[in-house]
Amino acid sequence: MRLLAGQILRFVAVGCLAAATHWVVAVACVEMLGLAPLRANVVGWLAAFCVSFAGHLLFTFRHPLHAWQRAAARFFLVSAGGFAVNEMAYAWLLHVSSVRYDVLLAAVLAGIAVGTFIASRLWAFRRTPGA
């Protein structure tokens, strides 16, 4: 149980850094480059993916470096699935809400985190040979 609690805390720390990266890059793309929020969200996700994968590989799950390619492919699928849900929810919220785009993005990013942890722990960074 202690191992799981530590893993959750590390996941939250890496996730916060990745979410902050996602949010800052997306908002910068809107504010500085004039991209539409949904397009900026894609750029933010790509930047955050790099931060998230490296952090989870090395810190959260302390995955063996020799097996990073399989973990990268699996984590990409987990992250892309989470991003697909993120983008759909974000598009819907932008359409039905009058809340600012940056506030909506922060809410959507927080909402995806639990599912990403579960899929990452049980599949993407799973260490058993048959997984």
Rank of each mutant, 00 (worst) to 15 (best):
V12K: 04
G15D: 06
C16G: 14
T21R: 02
W23G: 03
W23I: 00
V25P: 07
V30G: 00
V30N: 00
V30A: 00
L33N: 02
G34T: 08
G34F: 07
L35F: 15
R39I: 04
N41R: 01
V43T: 12
F49E: 01
C50A: 15
C50Q: 10
C50Y: 03
V51D: 07
A54C: 14
A54T: 14
A54K: 10
A54G: 13
H56R: 07
H56P: 10
L57W: 11
F59Y: 15
F61P: 03
R62Y: 03
L65C: 03
H66Y: 10
H66S: 15
H66D: 13
A72W: 14
F76N: 03
L77G: 12
V78Q: 04
S79Q: 13
S79W: 12
G81M: 05
F83Y: 15
A84C: 14
N86R: 00
N86W: 11
E87N: 11
M88S: 15
A91Q: 07
W92R: 12
W92A: 13
L93Y: 09
V96N: 03
V96W: 11
S97E: 08
Y101V: 09
D102Q: 12
V103I: 14
L105A: 14
L105R: 15
V108Y: 08
V108A: 05
I112F: 09
A113I: 11
T116D: 13
F117I: 06
I118L: 14
A119P: 10
S120Q: 03
S120Y: 03
R121A: 13
L122W: 14
W123D: 01
A124G: 02
